[in-house]
């Protein structure tokens, strides 16, 4: 799958970046293809890559309780793994491929931080976007908690 600026423009993690910046950023990442049922990352594991869904759908699964719970589906344009990118802590949920096939753009923490050191304006913008996305997710949680039941979670 060819990564073009037009594809990346639809992901809010990259909002505010120019085509030139997006092209340079795409060269830092790696495209990975997963198939239905593949575990992309595992709750509790120590890994720090961040992912952007380019195509397909993945599901966020919690294994905190005895019963595995599928929390929410993430489609094109969504990113995940930001928390471990920021704090290097263990993964807070398992991510599993839900669609027959999903293409993800993956950045390792080291590669991304090195790129941000070189391109500080890109780093500023992406960190702002990550913070905004976390705020978005928190607001969803607040809203869905107010629903009668079964409103989903994030």
């Amino acid at each position: 799958m060819e990564i073009t600026p037009s594809i990346l423009h639809t992901a809010d993690l990259f909002a505010g970046l120019s085509d030139t910046q997006l092209t340079a950023l795409a060269a830092v990442g790696q495209v990975s293809v997963f198939h239905r049922g593949d575990i992309i990352l595992k709750e509790g594991e120590q890994s720090t890559a961040v992912y952007v869904v380019l195509k397909g759908q993945v599901e966020v699964v919690s294994e905190l309780t005895e019963n595995t719970t599928s929390l929410i589906i993430l489609g094109a344009g969504q990113s995940f793994g930001e928390m471990s990118l920021l704090d290097a802590g263990p993964r807070s949920a398992t991510i599993r491929c839900l669609s027959p096939e999903a293409s993800l753009l993956t950045f390792t923490r080291d590669d991304l931080l090195a790129f941000w050191d070189q391109e500080s304006r890109v780093g500023y913008r992406m960190l702002f976007n990550i913070a905004r996305d976390l705020a978005f997710k928190l607001r969803i949680r607040n809203l869905t908690n107010a629903l009668p039941r079964g409103g989903g979670d994030l």
Binding site: I73, G75, T144, G150, G151, G152
Partner: peptide, 12 residues
């Protein structure tokens, strides 16, 4: 989000 049941939501 889907009301009234145990259905997953989606962000896209």
């Amino acid at each position: 989000v889907i009301v009234g049941g145990q259905h997953r939501g989606m962000v896209i």
